[in-house]
Structure formats: structure tokens, C-alpha cells
Computed example of a mutant assay.
Amino acid sequence: MLGRRSLLALIGAPLLPLPVAADDFPVRPITLVVPFAAGGSIDVLARLAAQEASAALGQSIVVDNRGGAAGLIGAASVAKAEPDGYTLLLASAAQVTIAPWVNRSLTFDPPRDLAPVVHLADTPMVLVVAERSTMKTVDDFVSEARANRGGLNYASTGVGTISHLVMESLKLAAGIDVVHVPYRGAAPALNDLQTGQVQAMFTSTASAAMMVAAGKLRPLAVTTTSRSPLFPEVPTMAEAGWPAAEVVVWAGVMAPAGTPRTVTRRLERAFIEAIVAPDMRARLVKLGADPVGHGAKAFAEVIERDLALWQRVALASGVKVE
């Protein structure tokens, strides 16, 4: 696993023969695989982007939800699909840059078998505690954890997920010992957090927003380099003094490796056009996402940096998905 060519080298690789002339692509509907169940934030992003990009391409983009195994079932299906541009993946770090380091049973090599097309959006994560908690800052959380070694619990959406590994990165930086309690999704984890069954959690700003507004949760800091529009008064982790937990949670479109670059360029232009449209940007910001709209080369650089980050965290923390 991961004995691979650089993603940047792949971007500049010689083009493979096209099954049809590039100007003819696409001649039939495209499938965009979302590796999670319908209704989540990734699914909403996929449907909005697909609707807008369809107009630019002159063909429909059909969203196909293939959930399971933290998104790896859907991701594997795209990695093994015909590299012709007609099967795409709405990818996130969980499948592409985290799984290679923590999952022992992968049936494919994500950074080798999937090629970046376009970086659509980033979503901040936020460290939250119950509103009734005495912790008001990240330093409060760290101090409490140091004073009660092994006495605090934190929730995540599952072993090896980004909500798990972001906390692991903070644990490593702060030298604290808090107990991991994995859940099957954000909703049950946040319910237990606000009742005091667990004491903290990193989750997406979108997932936390309603409970924060209802006075059930208190946000301590967001993981992005700038503050979230959903929580403009909440500092970043760097502002709070903990830049080691600064993480970009990206989402983007990827294609099977070997897809002709002329085809991925056509897709790249269509999705960028979709994501930078003013009404699209406004809708994504309301959902707590930061629209990006960067092409394949810039997206490949994000993936390379992310691979290095999660390799370091996974090796230092020993996190493994059995």
C-alpha cells in the first residue's frame, strides 16, 4: 500500500487514448457516487454540485448513494470502475487520506487508484462541550484532562474517522489522556455529549449548529485557519494556542486513475463553474461549508499534505481499524 507515484506526477502524465473525441464528452449521463447514505452534508453537497455541473456538461449527473464501511465501499467501486469519466466519486479525507494509514483490510489503494478532479469545498470542525460544562476554552479542556488523566471521555463518529483523529492530534500535542468513545454517527454522539455521558467532541460545524443555537452545546474552537461563518465569535484552534489541531476537512470529486486528462479537464471546468456560482456559494455557506472550486493540480497538493498529516497522527497514536 502507498508505494505509489506522486499525485502531482499523475496530473502531468501522458494522456491515454480517448474512447470518444474529447469534444464529444459526455455523450451519456454521469454517475456521481456518494459513499454515504442520503441526507448527510456530503450528499447535499453532491446533489447541489451535480445539478449545477449538469447544465455546463449538457448531460445529467446522477447521484448514487453507496454507503458502508466509512465510505470505503462506494470509494472502492469507483476506484475499480472504467476510467472513462462516467463514474465519479464525491470523496473526503476519510476514504482517501486517512484510510490508507488506519485500515488493515483495504481492497484498493486510494491515492493510487483515484485521481483528483476538483476540490469543491471545505468544512470546519469544531470542538464542543456541553453547555453545562465548566470548560469555556480549549485550555480549560486541556487543563481538566491533565488534572484527571484518563478521567474524561470524548466522542467520535467511529474509529479511524476524522473526528477521532483530530482529537488524537490534540492529545499528542497537549500530552493528555482522554478516553475515546466511538459512536455510529454524529447524532447519537452529540446527544450523549449534551447530557454529560461524554465530555467533548470534534464534529462539523453544521452538525453542531442547531444544538449550539439551542443552548445545549458550547463551541470552544474551530479547526480551520479562519473562523467559521456559523460561529464568528469562536476562535480557531491556532488562535486558542493549539495549531497542531488545525485541520481542513475537504470534499472533492475524484475519478478512477487512468481517466484521460482531457476528460477530467472537462469535468473540472464544469464543477468549478458550478461551485463558484454566487447562488451555489450562498447555499453552501448556509450549510456551514466553505466553497473552494480549485482544480486538479491544487487538489492533488491538498491530498499530498493530508496524507502526510494523517500518516504522522496514525503512526504516533497507533489508531487502527480492525
Score class of each variant (00 low, 15 high):
41 S>K: 04
63 V>P: 11
33 V>C: 00
38 A>R: 09
52 E>G: 04
43 D>G: 02
52 E>N: 06
65 N>H: 11
53 A>L: 07
64 D>G: 00
43 D>T: 09
58 G>C: 13
46 A>E: 06
58 G>W: 10
33 V>E: 01
60 S>Y: 07
56 A>T: 13
51 Q>P: 00
40 G>P: 00
36 F>R: 06
46 A>P: 03
37 A>S: 10
60 S>W: 04
58 G>N: 10
44 V>P: 01
65 N>M: 02
46 A>F: 00
42 I>L: 15
64 D>I: 02
65 N>Y: 01
37 A>I: 02
46 A>V: 04
46 A>Q: 05
53 A>W: 07
35 P>H: 06
36 F>Q: 08
53 A>I: 14
51 Q>C: 05
45 L>N: 10
50 A>D: 05
56 A>M: 11
62 V>K: 05
37 A>G: 14
47 R>Y: 03
57 L>Y: 13
53 A>P: 12
32 L>Y: 02
58 G>E: 12
62 V>G: 03
65 N>A: 02
39 G>N: 08
59 Q>N: 09
61 I>M: 03
51 Q>W: 00
62 V>E: 12
58 G>F: 11
56 A>K: 15
53 A>N: 11
58 G>L: 11
52 E>W: 05
40 G>R: 03
48 L>V: 13
64 D>F: 07
59 Q>E: 15
63 V>R: 14
52 E>P: 04
58 G>R: 06
49 A>V: 05
63 V>S: 07
49 A>Q: 05
33 V>D: 01
42 I>Y: 12
61 I>N: 09
32 L>K: 06
55 A>F: 12
42 I>H: 10
57 L>M: 12
46 A>C: 02
54 S>G: 13
45 L>G: 07
44 V>C: 04
64 D>L: 07
46 A>L: 01
52 E>H: 13
41 S>P: 01
45 L>F: 05
32 L>H: 00
62 V>R: 13
44 V>A: 14
45 L>W: 06
56 A>D: 13
45 L>K: 05
45 L>Y: 06
62 V>D: 11
37 A>M: 08
51 Q>E: 15
41 S>C: 03
42 I>K: 03
44 V>S: 08
33 V>I: 01
40 G>V: 08
52 E>I: 00
37 A>F: 09
64 D>V: 00
39 G>H: 04
37 A>P: 01
40 G>N: 15
34 V>S: 04
50 A>P: 12
32 L>W: 00
55 A>P: 09
33 V>A: 00
42 I>W: 03
43 D>S: 15
40 G>E: 06
44 V>Y: 10
33 V>R: 00
55 A>M: 12
39 G>Q: 11
39 G>K: 09
62 V>Y: 02
59 Q>G: 09
59 Q>K: 07
45 L>S: 04
49 A>I: 01
49 A>K: 02
51 Q>T: 10
63 V>T: 06
57 L>F: 13
59 Q>T: 14
64 D>C: 02
62 V>I: 10
44 V>L: 09
54 S>W: 13
34 V>L: 01
49 A>M: 04
47 R>K: 14
37 A>L: 10
34 V>P: 00
41 S>F: 04
52 E>R: 15
36 F>H: 07
41 S>L: 12
54 S>C: 13
34 V>W: 01
42 I>M: 12
58 G>D: 09
39 G>D: 11
61 I>R: 02
